[in-house]
Amino acid sequence: MLDMIKLSKRLQSIADLVTPGSRIADIGSDHALLPVYLVQSGRCPSAIAGELNKGPWQAAVRGVAEAGLANVIDVRHGDGMSVLNAGDADTVTIAGMGGSLMSMILEAGWQGGKLQQVKELVLQPNVGEDLVRRWLVERRFALQNEIIMEEDGRIYEVLHAIKAANADSHNEALYDSSFLPLKLTESAGRKLLYAMGPLLLREPSACLVRKWQLELAKLERICGQMLQSDTSEAREKEAAFRQEMNLIGEVLACLPTVKPSSS
């Protein structure tokens, strides 16, 4: 067997959230680095690596064989959760794609009965984290942990959720925005927590502040572009963006332990 592979900071954060002893299925596994590490390290007894694109799938097959793990890591070629059968895995990981696509893959897996016996999800959407959080609530997964990190100039969030009998009550309390010293309606508060992360906001970090400072700068640029148009639609969109920006700014200003740095 080859030496233990070294993961990126992003993939290591995902690996660290996987419950030891779980049978893992990594969907969109690329070169199967995560499954190889999880089995090599002894954290998981077996793994499935699912990959749609032929080049990465072939690389995954080779990498698993070179690691001497072909007997315990099954590299499968297919789209999303079509590579799984019910009962194949305890934990599903999905990383490195947009939240919209990730939510569609999860929902297709749910509808196809592929997630019935899955106890745990570890998810790393590149964008659209709010869509993934909404899906978890709708399908009664209880969010346990959220990690935010920066690597190579990009900021990533990792979400860890489990299937729980008390998921509804857990999520109801989790997405109650009353801990923020802001006057928000229930729907506005919930939307805010879906976007910014209910656990991230409860234990704010400098990385969280930086992410949303960058988001404010992006929204400011969009508003500037809209000033080039005289249409009423552009004015309405700009007003909506300004309202969103004001709310984000208020949230950043009231976070309990971290204040936004001056830009």
Rank of each mutant, 00 (worst) to 15 (best):
E203P: 01
W212A: 01
L199N: 06
P181F: 12
A188N: 10
L208I: 06
A217V: 06
S178C: 09
C207H: 05
S178D: 09
Y194D: 07
R221P: 02
G189Y: 04
L227C: 10
L214N: 13
M226P: 00
R190M: 03
R202A: 10
M196L: 11
S229K: 12
D176M: 04
A217M: 07
K211H: 15
A165E: 15
K218L: 12
E172Y: 07
E186C: 07
L219I: 09
Y175R: 01
T185V: 05
F179W: 04
L180N: 09
L199P: 00
K163C: 05
K163D: 00
S169W: 05
L192M: 01
R190Q: 13
Q228Y: 08
K191S: 12
L174S: 03
L201H: 02
S205H: 07
K218M: 11
D168E: 15
K163P: 01
C223Y: 03
L227V: 11
A173D: 13
E186F: 05
A234I: 06
K218P: 01
R202V: 04
I162W: 00
A239P: 04
A206C: 04
A188Q: 14
E215A: 14
A234D: 01
Q228M: 13
P204N: 04
K211N: 11
L216N: 01
S187E: 15
R202Q: 12
I162Y: 03
K163T: 07
I162A: 07
K237N: 09
I162D: 04
L227E: 15
C223L: 06
R210C: 11
L193D: 01
I222H: 12
Q228L: 15
F179G: 02
L200D: 00
A240T: 11
A239D: 08
K218F: 12
L182P: 05
S178L: 03
L182R: 10
A188L: 11
L219Q: 14
R235Q: 14
L192P: 00
A206V: 12
R221V: 10
N166D: 15
R221G: 05
L193H: 00
M196E: 13
S187N: 14
P198E: 00
K211C: 08
E215W: 04
M226L: 15
L200A: 08
W212S: 02
M196Q: 11
L182F: 10
K237F: 09
N166G: 08
E220I: 06
V209N: 09
A195D: 12
I222R: 14
K237C: 08
K237W: 09
L193W: 01
K163H: 13
A173W: 08
E220R: 11
A167F: 05
Q213S: 07
I222T: 14
